[in-house]
Design a protein around this nucleic acid. Structure first.
Length: 482
DNA sequence: TGAAATGTTGGGGCG
DNA sequence: ACGCCCCAACATTTC
């Protein structure tokens, strides 16, 4: 940080939030320059509804905290409460002279942090925030006229790629901890936050995800050695591991985007020529763009970016919404995706787009319903990416997919899940159905269904809505607002 | 990071 | 050999 002299208070505090790692953590590096460091995580249950974690997210957080505490040799103080009160008390009790954190960009977090900064400063404490979760911060990328970009490509190419290079990842600093019984934590103390589910739906998830800083590094290495070269093609196929699967780690900051960005760059000698490399880096760019939009146009979580959509005749239909949520729409690729989400807390990206298009267009249900369900169910739930993604699909977002671009889930299934491996994994009742009707069982004859031991409406649902007429209906609705 | 509708072309069957 | 029709296959436009 230029032109700032280091505060020479002997004791500093680092407030961990969504940066649960010891490597490449700017706030931790700053805090560690002091003789003694108090590390704290504050679990706040009084957050606004929009910010309250869903079950899968909580599960992730639990493991992330265990991992962080471990990396800090048991010196992560873990408490429940209101951050403003907790910080004021802890700073007093432990004679803290400087407080550090990495910035968050959700509007509620910005206003909370602003208040806390003011309060702590009034107590004579030095407070500094750093950038620990974005490659380029929203305020530093603007058009020539000083206004924010609204279209991805110029934002990324002219704004980001021409700006100063992102920070190169830094090492874990040497840390001298405050010695205090109160600041010592064991696993039981983290367990007491009750972040784990009371019924154990998480055994499957447990096998698939190693939520730790080390686990993030493994995933990143696997991605670079095994998947990135064919990323451009393979990322579309839900039955294979063609995507990076780094989103949960990025969300909680077990991995910084800088670590991902430079690991990929360095592995390919700094060249972006390989298609998969270029495309992956631009996916990190989309993540940046989501935060950028959230920062500059801060109501994208609740409001249509494109105001025309305020008049869109969304349908309220509990039955349709529930069928979608439970994976009982009768459209195999949709149901497989929604069941994957429910069972594993994750959904393949291609399938996320397909199920979102189906909800918003074929069922004509408000994107906010989908956004809320994803928020509740996803391990990697992230309000910036989630709201930007849903608005993109709905057509109401900045640089969105045009409304008339409607996915046909049958064609998408036939294109990206040819052999039905993905569908059959989550809809095992369709196991014996041949490829011809696998993605459209409602068109199979009763003999073919009988051969596959399926009675539609009993073993597997009949389809909720006709794809052709519901598509037509959505287009007609769109013409009323354009 | 669509899909359907519509338009164009060219080969082959056929009188 | 020729024109006509049909219809894939591909291209373009439209939603």
């Amino acid at each position: 940080m230029p032109n700032t002299t280091q505060n020479d208070a002997p004791r500093s505090l680092i407030w961990f939030r969504q940066d649960l790692r010891v490597k490449d953590n700017p706030a931790l590096i700053n805090a560690a320059k002091h003789e003694h460091v108090l590390a704290i995580y504050i679990f706040d249950e009084s957050l606004p509804d929009k910010a309250k974690l869903g079950g899968a997210s909580k599960w992730c957080l639990h493991h992330a905290l265990i991992s962080l505490n471990d990396a800090l040799d048991g010196n992560l103080m873990v408490v429940s409460g209101n951050p403003e009160d907790v910080l004021a008390t802890v700073c007093k009790e432990h004679d803290i002279g400087a407080v550090y954190w990495n910035r968050m960009y959700e509007p509620w977090a910005i206003s909370r942090d602003t208040d806390i900064k003011k309060e702590l400063k009034s107590q004579g404490i030095d407070v500094r925030s750093s950038n620990g979760s974005l490659l380029w911060e929203p305020m530093q990328v603007l058009k020539k006229d000083e206004t924010p970009y609204k279209v991805f490509t110029p934002y990324y190419k002219n704004g980001c790629l021409n700006a100063a290079h992102p920070r190169y990842p830094e090492r874990k600093p040497h840390i001298g901890f405050v010695t205090s019984v109160e600041a010592q934590t064991d696993d039981a103390k983290i367990a007491a936050l009750a972040l784990l589910p009371t019924i154990s739906w998480d055994t499957e998830i447990d096998k698939q995800w190693n939520i730790s800083e080390q686990g993030a590094q493994y995933k990143l290495e696997r991605f670079i050695t095994e998947a990135i070269e064919d990323y451009n093609e393979d990322r579309n196929i839900p039955s294979i591991r063609g995507t990076s699967q780094l989103s949960p780690y990025l969300h909680f900051g077990l991995l910084s985007p800088n670590q991902a960005w430079y690991a990929v760059h360095d592995a390919f000698d700094g060249s972006r020529e390989k298609k998969g490399v270029y495309v992956y880096l631009s996916e990190l760019g989309w993540r940046e763009f989501s935060y950028y939009l959230l920062f500059h146009f801060n109501d994208i979580q609740n409001r249509n970016f494109n105001k025309k959509f305020d008049n869109f005749p969304w349908q309220q239909n509990k039955k349709y919404l529930q069928a979608w949520q439970q994976g009982n729409t009768g459209v195999p690729i949709i149901d497989a995706g929604m069941r994957e989400l429910w069972q594993t807390g994750y959904m393949h990206n291609r399938v996320r787009m397909i199920v979102a298009s189906y909800l918003v267009k074929n069922l004509m249900i408000d994107w906010r319903e989908g956004e809320r369900w994803f928020w509740d169910c996803l391990l990697d739930a992230d309000s910036a990416s989630n709201s930007a993604g849903w608005q993109w699909v709905a057509g109401s977002g900045a640089d969105a997919s045009p409304y008339f671009r409607i996915f046909n889930p049958v064609l998408q299934g036939e294109k990206f899940d040819k052999q039905g491996e993905y569908v059959k994994k989550y809809c095992p009742e369709l196991k014996a159905l041949g490829n011809k009707y696998l993605h459209k069982p409602w068109e199979a004859s009763s003999e073919e269904l009988a051969d596959a031991n399926i009675v539609l409406g009993k073993d597997y649902p009949g389809h909720l809505v006709d794809l052709k007429t519901s598509r037509r209906r959505a287009l007609d609705a769109y013409s009323t607002i354009k």
